[in-house]
């Protein structure tokens, strides 16, 4: 086994292309478990923790954020609560302090687990994954990034450079169901963003389909319902029927399975509740914004 420890982004890309058998490792919170249990024995490890370009985040010209792939959940929680509220909420629910201080958003994407807690929110805000190889850089909308259970559209010579988050355009929420508060893989999870500026809704589900994905029917329904009732402008009371219907549509947009963590029926039920509840919170925030 070889251990590659590049100290610049250019060297990391060169190493990725020259040593395709070396697995990238960031916080190691997914990969080291695989190694410790001998479920996986890569030809080498490509350590990304010494690449300064991955560790930082910046404001983008449009007012959004370019989040380096190596930024940890702990930093998202403390530094980005305003610029990436949904992602910060999701980050707070990841594992334990020890996991959050090492685990990265890039690693969450790299693992591409249907249960990855960053994913529903990244979908809801229409984030873009910036990937790069020695051949060049490309921008992949996060909805196209996930291609199957633990599979992504990352090519073998590519690394995740960053995640591009659009400017916050309204309230964002994240909620997850697990057997307890700390240290749980989501039984199911939900991310929501109300884009008041363009009057659209981002809603996405985790752990309830082969990949994290948009709840597209529910998104379209809610945006149209808010339009019809003039609620985007009036910021009036949200009818209970709208919230309930939204929850039901989110559940219908999922295609969950039965597994050790929960049944498909439970997941659908939980999703409808999470969706309705997070919508209530988000709507409360949206009304507060005008005040």
């Amino acid at each position: 086994m070889e251990f590659l420890a590049p100290t610049t982004w250019a060297d990391a890309l060169a190493a990725r292309s020259e040593h395709p058998g070396a697995m990238p490792i960031a916080g190691g919170t997914d990969l080291m478990v695989e190694l410790n249990f001998d479920r996986h024995r890569p030809e080498g490890l490509l350590d990304l923790t010494r690449v300064p370009e991955l560790r930082d985040w910046q404001r983008t010209e449009d007012g959004g954020v370019r989040l380096g792939a190596g930024v940890t959940f702990a930093r998202v929680m403390t530094e980005l609560a305003d610029l990436a509220p949904g992602l910060a909420m999701a980050s707070r629910t990841v594992g334990s302090p020890q996991i959050r201080v090492r685990g990265t958003v890039g690693g969450n994407l790299g693992s591409a687990s249907p249960a990855g807690d960053a994913h529903p929110v990244l979908l809801a805000v229409d984030a873009v994954v910036e990937v790069e190889s020695v051949r060049g850089s490309r921008q992949v909308p996060v909805a196209e990034f996930f291609t199957g259970v633990k599979r992504s559209s990352l090519e073998p010579d590519e690394l995740i450079a960053a995640v591009l988050l659009p400017p916050v355009a309204g309230p964002q929420q994240f909620a997850k169901i697990g057997t307890r508060n700390a240290m749980v893989i989501a039984v199911t999870s939900f991310g929501l963003a109300l884009h008041g500026d363009r009057r659209t809704v981002g809603a996405a589900i985790g752990s309830a389909a082969p990949t994290p994905r948009h709840a597209a029917t529910a998104e379209a329904f809610l945006a149209a319902a808010l339009d019809e009732d003039g609620l985007w402008e009036s910021r009036g009371d949200l009818p209970d029927a709208t919230a309930t219907r939204f929850g039901d549509l989110v559940a219908a947009d999922a295609s969950p399975i039965d597994d050790v963590r929960g049944t498909a029926a439970y997941r659908r039920h939980a999703l409808s509740v999470l969706a309705r509840r997070t919508l209530g919170w988000a709507w409360h925030d949206y009304r507060g914004e005008a005040a």
Partner: peptide, 9 residues
Amino acid sequence: DVVCACLVA
């Protein structure tokens, strides 16, 4: 930082 040493290569 307090980390799990089992997860650090």
